[in-house]
Design a protein around this nucleic acid. Structure first.
Lengths: 338, 338
DNA sequence: TACCTTTGCTAAAATGGTTAAGCGATAAAA
DNA sequence: TTTTATCGCTTAACCATTTTAGCAAAGGTA
């Protein structure tokens, strides 16, 4: 396949490059006859304009850059691909390309910043990144960016698209109450500085509404690390009685908890009920299948692109976009008779 | 952050743009003193050359395009992200960007070809794509490409990086034999035109070596679709006796089979052993945890990039790259006493 | 008839880099 | 002594588009 330029097309069609450019970009100022003739030559030659030249000229790259956090622990990488798919779909509709970078716990952002300064993207989507170094550097470069599925540490200047964790946790706990549970533990990070910290508010508000109080030993504040939930549970077994149910802030924690409980000979859900948030793939395959608050993962990506595009177009946009969750009932919650 | 061009740097450092360009690209012909001075200005200003201009000039984009197949059925998307991570790591080392596209069962490649013709990538990596329309179009455009984790339908002109399915299936079946199994079924596609068809050879060769023969009813040829393995098993239960073990060509099939068997009241592994290939995340969480042939998923991506890069550099490269597998013993295979 | 506007088109500048060719000055070889 | 090579640098062309400014012809208006 020969390599045509706009000059070749112009020469073949017997017009100037300007005319061809106008036809390519659907601009006025070209007669219908000429337009047809140029179109025909473009069709025949299979000409596609060089993207780099176009980007150089327009000083826009028509691409968004996605930064993905790569977790050591498989279970935490679960829906990154679905978020990506959502991002891709929206970008496709807008005519944007998508480029990707993975970062790990070193949070090294030099390569990313190099890329941004070299103008290879018009905006950045940070997926599961909550390190303020990224926000600071991106703001410094004055490049639009959004966070998705990340905790932005109370910084209202950082636009974010995330799961409505408050609503999710509130609904989850309410569901436990509806099933007759009165002793409900909280497994997740209970400090406001952590990811998914909104869950603690949903949990306490739901308890308060039901007039319940919680044994402090049943409230955990654990790290995002493989096996952390299991360790917490081991310790709990040594030192305290058990609640009748646990609300976990994520399926990865819940799965960890379930396995740890089962090792201790505690039957789920007969001895202990478990509910959580995420509905990752594994959750439907473990025994018992997990009852969890589910949501549309692709929507996270789609909304992120929409927000970013609005920022570029100087349109109005919401600084916080929440994705709603719905209950996915499976078999890890027992209905208590009362 | 101001927006400097190479001209600004040249002016500030008191040299020509050529000198700056030479410094940027580590080319000879610049005195050490000048080089230092230019470096200092670059440092101070935070200048990064415009990527589009560079790409336009060099007629290379320094990026690879990854095409990912998006499966309807979650279980089949399992290690796409890990392949991606491997691809990214290798690209990073080579200084290449990575852009992505998802395709679905419509196999629409117009957007991809547009992108290729507009020169936005120097090569394409097809992940889990086996449609010859892609090969044909890419060959037509004379753009280098590799397939990864795909079946290329006996076309030796298409470079491929894939799991050594023959070795994996041979080893898996040998393991079953070592555990005393003599009646071993095959669950997967048994026609040479399908993905992972090499598994059938490994299976039959291992059986032959052991002097075993197989009841044809225990050999399936099923589609890549959710629940297909389960349906096959349901039918088998109606019409035939069961082998003592099944070798499945993929964990998704195996999981489907296990669940179907369990619905029929057949205990795994006591009544039926199951082994397969992949070691997807779910496999360690189901009951019983799956014994399976595992491999380094990131390596698939890394090798794909290496092959593609060799093609660009006109270096030697292997047209077929096989990734070795190792046995991951868990609890789905029973040791028969004999 | 003279003047203004619109239409359809083009020449040329601009985008921000890379690179081939060339130019003094100095050093080495004939 | 003359010729040749090397060094450090610059000038200018080039990459493939978009866009501004302007021009000739046609049409409308006074």
């Amino acid at each position: 396949m020969a390599n045509f330029t706009i000059r070749d097309i112009a020469r073949i069609a017997g017009v100037s490059t300007t005319a061809v450019s106008f036809v390519l970009n659907n601009k006025p100022g070209v007669s219908e006859a000429t337009r047809q003739r140029v179109q025909e030559v473009i069709q025949r030659t299979g000409f596609t304009p060089n993207a780099h030249t176009r980007r150089l000229n327009l000083r826009r790259s028509f691409s968004f850059h996605v930064v993905l956090y790569w977790h050591d622990y498989d279970l935490f990488n679960q829906f990154a691909l679905e978020i990506m798919h959502g991002i891709f779909q929206s970008c496709k509709e807008l005519g944007y390309d998508v480029t990707i970078t993975f970062v790990d716990e070193t949070m090294d952002c030099t390569a990313l910043m190099e890329s941004v300064r070299s103008k290879t993207c018009d905006g950045v989507i940070l997926s599961q990144i909550e390190d303020s170094i990224f926000f600071a550097r991106l703001q410094q470069e004055e490049i639009p960016f959004v966070c998705v599925d990340s905790h932005v540490k109370e910084d209202p200047s950082v636009p974010i698209v995330e799961v409505d964790y408050y609503q999710a946790s509130y609904e989850a706990v309410k569901h436990l109450c509806r099933c007759g549970h009165k002793q409900i533990g909280f497994l997740g990070p209970a400090t406001p500085l952590e990811l998914r910290s909104a869950t603690f508010g949903g949990y306490t508000d739901a308890l308060r509404e039901e007039g319940l109080v919680c044994n402090p030993a049943w409230i955990s504040s654990i790290d995002f690390a493989a096996g952390a939930a299991g360790k917490y549970f081991d310790k709990l077994m040594d030192t305290s009685s058990l609640p009748t149910a646990f609300f976990c802030t994520g399926d990865a924690f819940a799965i960890d908890l379930v396995r740890s409980a089962q090792r201790h000979g505690i039957a789920i859900p007969d001895d202990l009920s478990v509910i959580s948030i995420d509905n990752i793939l594994v959750s439907q395959f473990i025994m018992p299948p997990l009852t969890t608050m589910t949501f549309n993962k692709e929507l996270l990506g789609r909304r992120a692109v929409e927000v970013l595009y609005s920022m570029l177009s100087a349109n109005e946009y919401e600084n916080v976009t929440l994705i709603p969750t719905t209950l996915c009932e499976r078999s890890s919650v027992k209905k208590l008779s009362y």
